[in-house]
Amino acid sequence: MPPDPTLSAPLAHLQGESPPAPAWFRDAVAVAPAIGRVSVRGARLETFAWGERGRPGLMLLHGSGAHAGWWRFTAPYLAEGYRVAALSWSGMGGSDWRETYDLDTFADEIEAVAEEAGLFAAGAPVMVGHSFGCFPMLTEAGRQAGRWRGAVIVDPPIFSPERRTGRRREDGRIGQHRIYPTLEAALARFRFAPVQPCDALYIADLIARESLKVVEGGWTWRFDPSMWARLALPDRAAMVRQARCPLALVTGARSDLMRPADAAYVQSLLPPGSPRIDLPEAYHHVMVDQPLAFVAALRTLLGLWPD
């Protein structure tokens, strides 16, 4: 069967035009973050921050190939009660690329950005990591007890033992991005990974535009295509067990990455009594699929947990 264009090229039919967006989204993205730069181990990182310094700290950590702008339509609502910060990992977004990548360096990036943004001013902050962002977050959570109040694991790529036996390893090839002659052509190639439906095309359009950069000959993606060939991950279950702060799990009820058996497996790795929230009608990219429900879930969770 030919690929479904609503999955493989959700923005192509728009021909470079931005789709209409609801008022809540327009209001959120109108709240411009404070954009900064922080140097960590020789790489300059792109940072975003919202909310007043002195409020409880909240660190938002995006997934693979994404960037800090993936939080632009949710962070302003969280910033009503928190000092919120986000970064683009080295090798992604507007941050510098590295010759090699490792989780300890990514964890150093979390600490440096959190310090620069003032997240520790009101005591131990909380981290929220989506997808790949869970791995640096769990590395950081395993370092020093008491430094972080808690860590929220959002639809992580941690799979049950039964499913791991049937999965391919991450692609280790070193490649190059294609260069598209126009912005319209580049936007037409945007898709989510893993591929999934997206009703909120105004969100897909925003993050796609901010995922691109101008280069000689046209437009291309901002993330380093060779990162996975230069990054080794330790045992994922061990990373969960070694965390030294409380953990919570948020999943998308329709996620094709974190399936029910995987979510049950991850939940079994968490300390007894750890919170679990399953967002109805959300796929893997929960902040895109159900952004307001995601905000409400985080607000409720952080208001009650950890004790």
Rank of each mutant, 00 (worst) to 15 (best):
V40Y: 14
A193F: 11
F294P: 00
G54R: 08
A68V: 09
P157G: 09
W305S: 04
R167P: 06
L14R: 10
L183C: 10
H130G: 03
P275F: 08
E52M: 06
M239W: 04
W219C: 13
E80T: 15
A107T: 08
L14M: 11
F190L: 07
A124P: 09
R191K: 15
G118W: 13
V214D: 09
W221Y: 11
A124Y: 12
G175Q: 10
I203D: 12
R53T: 14
R37P: 00
G252H: 02
R41T: 04
L87I: 11
E116P: 08
A121P: 11
S211K: 01
A75P: 01
I179T: 15
A188D: 02
T139Y: 07
M1Y: 05
F223V: 13
P3V: 11
E99C: 09
P194S: 02
W89N: 06
S95Q: 08
A49V: 05
R53F: 08
Q15M: 11
E184M: 00
P197F: 01
S131V: 09
L61E: 08
G54H: 15
T300S: 00
R191T: 02
L45F: 06
Q267R: 14
R254E: 08
Q196F: 01
L60Q: 14
W97L: 01
H62Q: 11
A107V: 13
D171P: 06
T100H: 11
D4S: 02
G146T: 12
G218P: 05
T139F: 11
S131D: 14
